[in-house]
């Protein structure tokens, strides 16, 4: 790990003023940044500690929406009574993330920005278009079992590794941001992450120095009946091979509203709109669930190692629908 300075600003304004400088990085829980720095995947020169400068609270607004402070710890969100009852997939996704120790440290903002777990990206001994643009992608012809099948490009097939954002994607969340000039904006979650295309090094639409302040999650009947299914290679403390967040509203046996997002398959949490469309207004029966889930792989671009994910996606969605409708 290379050396760096560590600033602990007293105010948010001071942190924002330091944010855009070359080599600067904000640090929240530090669980991803420290790993990346130890492996020289990221080499920050100036760390800016944002502890205490942004909200860490979990609350509900007058319109009933859930407000998650960017510095709220993963464990706090996962175990919050309102989250458990009204946004259960969010709680489940977080409880199935990492380990108790990491959940005590990691924050909402940091989890949204966790970088890919692609082994080539995380090992500076390999070339990688995301880490050093233009150097090539050894993953596509190489070990790609864990990598993406949707939204990928010829330049990068890395997946976004976090669980929580998959649940947020099925709940139409938005992000509240603040930029160095002090301006704030609200960005729909679906517009936050970018696809790799020919610039896999650019992962989000955050401006230089911009900070995530909070996540806003609307209250809805489908979120209330949401579930999270995570398929992984060991029973616990492991990233998803494939995961599915399913939010479902059924009235009188008919699907009124459904939102499905998947993790482990794309560079960002992936909405399955064709599966949703196939369910909308249909009877909530095993047959229509199966029929809709079979559309999961539409548009998938697979490698010889990860073609199995298409079937696994179908099954994860099916399980999610079964759980959410039970």
């Amino acid at each position: 790990m290379e050396g760096f300075t560590l600033a602990q600003p007293r105010s948010l304004d001071d942190a924002l003023a330091a944010g855009p400088q070359a080599g600067a990085k904000y640090i929240a829980g530090g669980t991803d940044l420290m790993q990346l720095a130890k492996d020289n995947v990221e080499t920050p020169h100036h760390l800016i500690d944002i502890e205490g400068l942004l909200p860490d609270t979990i609350s509900t607004a007058t319109d009933g929406s859930l407000q998650l402070g960017a510095l709220a710890r993963m464990v706090e969100v996962a175990t919050h009574a309102d989250v458990r009852s009204s946004w259960p997939a969010l709680s489940e996704a977080l409880l199935l993330s990492a380990s108790p120790q990491i959940r005590n440290m990691g924050t909402v903002g940091g989890n949204l920005l966790q970088r890919t777990r692609c082994g080539y990206f995380r090992d500076v001994g390999f070339s990688c278009n995301k880490r050093s643009p233009g150097s090539g992608c050894p993953a596509i012809p190489g070990e790609s079992r864990g990598l993406g099948v949707l939204g990928v490009s010829d330049h990068c097939i890395a997946t976004h590794p976090s669980d929580m954002p998959v649940a947020l994607m099925a709940m139409d969340a938005s992000l509240q941001l603040v930029s160095p000039g002090g301006g704030t904006r609200l960005v729909p979650f679906a517009e936050f992450y970018r696809l790799p295309g020919s610039t896999p090094e650019i992962e989000t639409n955050l401006l230089p120095g911009e900070l995530i302040v909070a996540v806003v999650v609307p209250r809805s009947a489908s979120a209330r009946r949401s579930r999270y299914v995570k398929v992984r290679d060991r029973a616990s403390f492991e990233f998803a091979v494939v995961s599915a967040a399913v939010a479902l509203e059924v009235t009188d046996g008919t699907v009124r509203n459904v939102r499905i997002a998947m993790g482990g398959v794309a560079p960002r949490p992936w909405r399955l709109s064709q599966v949703e469309a196939a369910l909308q207004g249909r009877p909530a029966t095993p047959e229509s669930f199966q029929e809709a889930a079979s559309l999961a792989g539409e548009g998938a671009v697979t490698t010889k190692d990860n073609a199995f994910k298409v079937k696994l996606m179908e099954r994860a969605i099916l399980r999610g629908l079964q759980l959410a409708s039970a």
Partner: peptide, 27 residues
């Protein structure tokens, strides 16, 4: 592991368990 994956370095900070390998001493 020095990377948060094994728990050998677990300590408590303000009563909560954390991995000390991913914690900066200064913080």
């Amino acid at each position: 592991c020095d990377r948060g994956s094994c728990g050998a370095c677990t300590v408590h900070i303000d009563g909560r368990r954390v991995v000390s390998c991913l914690t900066l001493a200064a913080r």
